[in-house]
Nucleic acid binder design. Structure first.
Lengths: 119, 119
DNA sequence: AATATGGTTAGCTGAATTGCTAACTAATGT
DNA sequence: ACATTAGTTAGCAATTCAGCTAACCATATT
């Protein structure tokens, strides 16, 4: 079992959640402190139900938590999923960087063997 | 113009690319060194054209580069996009962590005001 | 009690994503 | 020259995603 399959569920949904600019904007806003749904919605041009679905994605992933008091739902950030994902990236990057010189050397050797590179 | 919109294109495609387990597995494999398309494909059960499309996503995002020599296309990793994304995550995390105590205190205060939390 | 506000549910679109097969080109091996 | 291997192109089907409107419940506010 690779580490990938172990973390797959978590990372799939985390990266999926982060791949949308609206959702990243919400996260950036929440970094400044908790906010209600309509407060979060205000700067975005989309309809409220559409926006709510983005919020739901963030909650399902565990990145955002919310509490409803009266008719107001207040959202805040949960750091754990981010820390995990950042850990994965950092780990990958470490491996890559430790091999980059070798990789580049090899890539150069390959590209010099033939002039057939597309890209 | 927010920092989000500035980095939007890069980060959208990067996180989108990372949200698929097949593509993350390819990245992990490539961390161990360059490999041909069929070498990369071997451990995956999907049809080759399907797999090729995943590879194309990674190339379009700039995470993977490839060189064709003869009939063999050799792929390797490009570190830059990863470093950028990791930077964004690290930056976010820094902000969050510096506020986490305040956030949690506030969340507690809110949740104690009313018993209406639906997660 | 009536109205306004904050959020939610249901259901519809169009576009993008992920999988497939079939058929094909180009390079290599025999 | 012929067969095999490596990769590619084209096109189809099922699913998911991101947006919308309309209608609705529950809690303030007046």
């Amino acid at each position: 079992m690779t580490i990938v399959s172990y973390m797959a569920n978590q990372l799939d949904s985390f990266f999926g959640a982060m791949s949308d600019p609206t959702r990243r904007a919400v996260i950036e806003r929440l970094a400044a402190g908790p906010a209600s749904v309509s407060e979060l919605h205000k700067p975005h041009k989309m309809a409220l139900p559409t926006f709510m679905r983005h919020l739901k994605v963030l909650e399902d992933t565990g990145i955002v938590r919310s509490i409803k008091k009266g008719r107001v739902r207040t959202c805040h950030i949960e750091a754990a999923p981010l820390i995990e994902a950042q850990g994965w990236l950092a780990w990958q990057r470490e491996i890559w960087e430790s091999r980059l010189d070798r990789l580049e050397a090899l890539a150069h050797r390959i590209s010099e063997q033939g002039d057939n590179h597309d890209t």
